[in-house]
Nucleic acid binder design. Sequence first.
DNA 1: CGCCAGGAGTGGA
DNA 2: TCCACTCATGGC
Length: 332
Amino acid sequence: MNSSKALRIPLPVDFSFEECLWFLDRNYDECLHTLKEMKIIKAFSLDGKYILVSIKAEKMQLLVEVLKTERQCSSDTGISKSKKGKVTGLSNGDKKTLLDHISHWLDLERDISPFYALLNKDKRLDYMPDEYRGLRLIGIVDLFEALCWSIIGQQINLRFAFALKRRLVEKYGAKIEWEGVTHYLFPTCSDLSGITVAELRAMQFSESKARYLIGTAQAFVEGTISRKSLDGLPDLESRQKALMQLKGIGIWTANYCLMKTLREPSCIPHGDTGLLTALAKHSVIKERSEVEKIARFFKKYRGWESYLVFYLWRSLAGPGRNLTTPNLNPKG
DNA sequence: CGCCAGGAGTGGA
DNA sequence: TCCACTCATGGC
């Protein structure tokens, strides 16, 4: 636990580790990281290794400590277990990749001050830069994981979605032990491409969710779609369309994944029930059908639509200003 | 019991 | 293109 040996990432201005921790917790049963004493513990997979790290903030730096590394084995069952072994150290390349992942995950390389300037011009939202200052759009670095998570979360409440994700991860994902606690990695596409609908049905996945998940896994295994293939496409619309070729991926999921993984700045998950609720709470709309009003509203935030959506979602959960209470401001 | 959850696919007009 | 219907289950 010698922090002098920790890897360091300089933090940008308008970054709040506490705000990010709030999002990473949110009182949900998250299985892909653990929070402990203002530290994040999370497992990453890179270059044939599982790496368990702890992340904490100190002054204007993020301290990343490698707790444990383990060689990846092709199969977690049977004989190959003997191949598991300690990895003595990380190469400089590994360290760079690891820090890049974390940077990408927490969106550390963005100057969000232009976004705050736009919020400050909006009477309904100008409390946000104060209430949520430093909150970053926490992403999902892996595209396959992002797609699976959105399929799981479609049309069910988040509590149940986290329960389903945990069942999936604990059954099919890799694990790494540390101080008596098991830390999990999200299953890879090959982990899921061969499983059956019946197995998932037994874990209370719906028939269609099961089919979508397995189909997506197979598409990734076959190379029909990949992060790389999306990167090769010229614009947002073609990336949306490419994702929507997959069964179970509609416009909502496409936008959600592009926002969380490719960090497209202008993704609006249209029809999202949380987004509509938040817009109504902020008196941007009265009815959930006011599509053109929403479009007009978002026009003022061009280039920051994704961040705005994320902050609106943030506003739905406490602590923070409770917008359901009557507004005592005579300006209304 | 009824309605809603960080939707999407399908089939018919 | 646009609707209505269906899917599954938990939370409230």
